[in-house]
């Protein structure tokens, strides 16, 4: 269990660093696709199959294709070097940010999967959803129940945001037809 998790963390880190450093945008997009693959396996390992499916279908599939179409419609810089030069001031700022997070915030976190963590042991949220889902809604997948029933109004907002984003894309590109 933990061995898979550690190797996956290593894989994700390697792909993320490569995405950041590649100078060629096409290579960065291709490597970002690999990063999404690794991320979806980690979601799966952390027992979130719904999230992994969404990441697989949308993160790895649709995002990659939209990025490819964009660089097909714009430009792709010629590459004389493989990697970008490191921007030292940005690296210092980001390094300080990560250092503060790791040294100050990480010891305060519960261990991954600790049943005492507030998110999981809360009798009014997680436990209530898990116990009442089948009684209240008659569906077995608690994620669907929370999505469509308990937080239905929220999901309505999300659906309209997606709709609005489609319209916004058409407006920005000054197109009058959907297809």
């Amino acid at each position: 269990m933990s061995l898979v998790a550690y190797t996956l963390v290593a894989f994700i880190l390697v792909t993320a660093v490569a995405t950041a450093l590649f100078r060629d945008v096409l290579s960065a997009i291709v490597v970002f696709g690999a990063y999404s693959l690794g991320m979806a396996i980690l979601y799966t390992l952390l027992l979130a199959p719904d999230v992994a499916m969404t990441e697989a279908a949308i993160g790895a599939g649709v995002t990659t294709i939209l990025l490819l179409l964009t660089i097909a419609r714009t430009s792709r810089p010629s590459t004389e070097r493989l990697f970008e030069p490191i921007n030292v001031p940005a690296l210092v700022i980001v390094g300080a940010f990560v250092l503060v997070l790791v040294t100050q915030l990480l010891p305060e976190m519960y261990a991954v999967g600790d049943p005492a963590a507030p998110v999981w042991s809360n009798p009014e949220v997680t436990q209530a959803y898990l116990e009442q889902t089948y009684r209240d809604t008659g569906v077995q997948n608690a994620v669907t129940a929370v999505l469509a029933a308990y937080r239905g109004f929220d999901t309505f907002g999300e659906a309209v945001v997606v709709f609005a984003a489609g319209i916004a894309t058409l407006l920005v590109l000054k197109r009058e037809v959907f297809a």
Binding site: L47, V51, V119, V125, T126, Y129, L130
Partner: peptide
């Protein structure tokens, strides 16, 4: 079982994220 609530939030956030990326 894993908590369903964060999963729902992430699920919708991924879809909204692709919409944001597209814009």
């Amino acid at each position: 079982l894993a908590s369903p609530l964060p999963h729902v939030i992430v699920l919708t956030a991924i879809v909204v994220g692709i919409a944001l990326t597209a814009v």
